[in-house]
Computed example of a mutant assay.
Amino acid sequence: MTSQLEKSRTIKVLVVDDSAFMRKVISEMLEEADNIEVIDRARNGIDALRKLEKCNPDVITLDVEMPKMDGLQFLEKLVQVTGKSIPVVMLSSLTTKQSKTTIKALELGAVDFVAKPSGSISLDINKVQEKLIEKVRLAAKAKVKLDKAPSLSNTSLSLKKRKLKRINRNKKNLSQGQRPASNKKLVVIGASTGGPRALKEVVTLLPEDLNAEILIIQHMPPGFTTSLAERLNKLSKIKVKEAQEGDRLEKGLALLAPGDYHMVIERGKVSLSQSDKVHNVRPAVDITMESVIAEYGNNIVGVLLTGMGKDGAEGLKLIRDAGGQTIAQDEESCVVYGMPKAAYELGAVDVVKSIDDIAVEIVRRVNS
């Protein structure tokens, strides 16, 4: 009964783009879907805020670069000016500048983005249309928490840092006999929709002396993973880089799977592959998690963050079955409670935590 209601519910969309042609193209693409209606269009962020005084969309599609008020400025103002938390899907071309801006937009609370091929959505309409409709439908069901300000509060950060310091003090008090036989520990983090913001909340709080190697798998197209790695590296105490063929795993280094490549670990080194997609995604969390079991065994901490689908659930189960430890993000703090839910239902999760507590939990389990 519920699924029938969801299918019949019309999703109201506000299209925001500085190009009249693009507003027309995007609107026409969306309205070909049975349950999507474009209720208004805006030419920039200022115009969009004005339109929101009169209309109440379920989803906003938002261009990255616009005159007067661009996509980032609009996201910063959306809750502050309107008091509304409306799911936003960004439209971004595959340029370095726009991919960096898109990563910042996702940090600010945009649910997802659609990459414009060859820098123009009009060059490959059919390819983009399917993705756009899919992501608008997903966004309509997502939970959003748009920031009034882009950074965490000083109080929140202070509390988390105090917890991390306490855990590190406890680690120093452990006798050698209480430690695992091998010091080689690994943290594997998987994420999808809502992941860039969740990764920022987790990775930027990991201490630089964390006694573990780190792998991150985020569902994202090529180019955008480069920008995500650079952004996380800039904000974090640990080093973060996009993985390359032959990279060696190191303590205090996080390797992020590049877009459109599965990341497999063989004898402590990265091997990249464009083999068939798993769960219709590449990179896939399951592929990476499965590849590390033989080498790291019970010294793995597996983490699943927000995301659609079930990628990572089987991998997390393999980690737990091998004696490793597993953490899943809770429903309340997920943008989309898909991957963590699938893992929980499979019996693959040791502990469920809010995104605010996951960094602390990772450090605690690495040090245990």
Rank of each mutant, 00 (worst) to 15 (best):
263 M>V: 01
220 M>D: 04
309 G>V: 00
320 R>E: 15
42 A>D: 05
93 S>W: 04
314 E>K: 13
248 R>N: 12
227 S>G: 08
69 M>R: 06
25 V>Q: 02
290 E>F: 07
239 K>F: 11
6 E>F: 08
68 K>V: 14
117 P>S: 07
51 K>G: 12
185 K>R: 13
180 P>W: 12
209 D>Y: 09
285 V>L: 00
13 V>A: 09
43 R>Y: 14
243 A>E: 03
342 A>D: 01
288 T>W: 02
361 E>D: 10
167 I>R: 06
326 T>N: 07
2 T>Y: 12
168 N>D: 15
225 T>S: 06
266 E>K: 14
22 M>C: 12
173 N>K: 15
221 P>S: 07
275 S>H: 14
145 K>W: 12
90 M>R: 02
228 L>Y: 06
17 D>K: 07
49 L>S: 05
121 I>L: 13
219 H>Q: 03
210 L>R: 03
100 K>E: 15
60 I>N: 02
77 K>E: 13
336 V>L: 05
107 E>T: 10
79 V>R: 15
220 M>G: 09
104 K>E: 15
179 R>S: 14
33 A>K: 09
80 Q>T: 15
36 I>R: 10
43 R>K: 14
45 G>D: 10
159 L>N: 13
266 E>N: 13
248 R>D: 13
84 K>D: 08
85 S>T: 14
34 D>S: 15
299 N>V: 09
143 K>F: 11
333 S>Y: 05
86 I>L: 01
57 P>K: 07
108 L>T: 05
106 L>H: 03
202 V>K: 02
233 N>P: 02
189 I>A: 03
363 V>A: 06
55 C>P: 10
311 D>N: 00
159 L>H: 15
343 A>I: 01
169 R>K: 13
91 L>S: 10
182 S>I: 09
108 L>N: 12
263 M>D: 04
325 Q>A: 11
358 I>A: 05
309 G>Y: 00
56 N>A: 13
288 T>G: 10
47 D>E: 06
238 I>P: 03
247 D>C: 07
